[in-house]
Amino acid sequence: MAAATDNPPADITENLPDLPPSTLLPPLFNNTNPPPELLTQGAEALLYRTTYLVPSIPCALKHRPSKPYRHPILDARLTKQRILAEARVLAKCRREGVNVPAVYALDWEKGWLLMEWIEGGTVRSILDRWLHSTPVGVDASKRESELKDLMSRVGQTVGELHRAGVVHGDLTTSNLMLKPVSTADDTLASSHEEEGKQHQEQREQHLQGEVVVIDFGLAMQSVQDEDRAVDLYVLERAFGSTHPRAENLFQEVLRAYGESFKGAKVVLRRLEDVRMRGRKKSMIG
């Protein structure tokens, strides 16, 4: 009679060799001073803040590291494919007038991408702040209309994204940013002057600014209603789980989406099917 736990199998990682961590910076950035600042570490990629060309131009560095468990040939192939796909999608979106970070530089062999730094906060953080309390200087009814307007712009932006033939693949409120309106800028070098105090206050009272979509690591080029509907479904589920009180606000997102391009209403109908099917084919667990 053996206890099930007699001689439990060892943790498999204990017998494996020590390898350099996959979270090291790409070699080029080891020279950088100050070193790039790590912002997020996902399963797929690491995101840093650093500069492009000169200190006055901030940028985001996305690095898809080599994965130690993959065969090196497969690893190189996947890394290259994915960073390229992301860069292409970003460039395509920007070309079509969708608000996404611009691509500055790329090294697909080394798996890194430098792109425009987007100032501002995520829609997620805004909703967290604005749903739980009314910010200083804003009255309650104004708050409602500001939020509604923001939702409308979110819906419109997602519509523009889909119209450009791109599906995001991971639409959550953390991947939507609100970039404050800046004064006229012509070239990169002059676009990041210090914001005046006036702008700062304005930003906190009004949800002005452009909605910018970020993180296209799972994006793909598609015009299928199904893919677009799943995109919306993921965003809807994200709303539901992270901002449970915002469900009626999401209706505004869908309404604005429905009016953003020809064919959007068909996608909304498809969304109903996706909802009924539930988990299969969507990404939120």
């Binding site: 498999i12 990682t13 494996l16 996959s22 130690p68």
Partner: peptide, 12 residues
């Protein structure tokens, strides 16, 4: 195991 070890985790 290699994936988990890289993340400081464990595999059974």
């Amino acid at each position: 195991g290699l994936m988990a070890k890289d993340r400081g985790g464990s595999v059974y």
